[in-house]
Amino acid sequence: MVRKIFVIILLIGLGWFFYGMADSFHGSDSLNMTASYYAENGAEEVGAANLVTAIVVTYRGLDTLGEVTILFLTAAIAAFFLKSKEEFSKRDVKPSSELLQTAAGMLVPLIFVLGVYVFVNGHLSPGGGFQGGAIIASGLVLLLLSKPLQKVNSRFFALVESFSGLFYVGIGVAGIFLAGGFLDNSILPLGEFGTLLSAGILPVIYILVGLKVGSELSGLLTKFQETQEEN
């Protein structure tokens, strides 16, 4: 009980602090300096219609590289702690229902195509590598739910992940020699604004990010699925 009183006192203090911050918050009417630079020059410097993509992949490209590395590290550590059971292949599971299997057979290819569409069009419309990768991983979840005994080849995910990471860094280093700096996207010509083949190397980088995130999340989900015990 004493513990809860301490927690309540802490929360009241934090709440008072937050109240001060929310009270002094008032939405501004114009963009700040950084954002107005991106809004004014993003279209001609990067050539991407979606400014969020321009910031994620080009202006803050190093951040994204670090973020993908953190995701890789968490997936690797989680896989280390989730040693899969040896008797995994021997368990007997009730097969999932006919409805789920048929629907999964029809829907999974469509979900994969949607994921690829989302990350190929990341520089034109909402979406991109992270969203597309997550959509691909959720398609894999549907597949795993419909066929619980399916052995998923985790070496394939590891290969896709390693090679897309390698190419990502390779393109970044190529930017130092061929263009203005690390991860500069003007290695390829910028092309016509608003078309699929525009914004230089940016769509290629986002496709690589999509493949990397998709295979990392799929590998993580497969690891969790393999630890399931029999019921």
């Binding site: 114009s30 963009l31 700040n32 950084t34 954002a35 107005s36 991106y38 809004a39 004014e40 993003g42 279209a43 400014l51 969020v52 321009a54 910031i55 994620v56 803050r60 951040d63 994204t64 973020e67 953190i70 995701l71 968490t74 997936a75 991109g128 992270f130 997550a134 995130v213 999340l217 993580l220």
Partner: peptide
Amino acid sequence: ALTSIVDPVPQALVLTAIVIGLG
């Protein structure tokens, strides 16, 4: 664009933060 869009920088940060959150 300068007078009609919201600030894109926090959106880009949150985009990556959500993925790290899952990890």
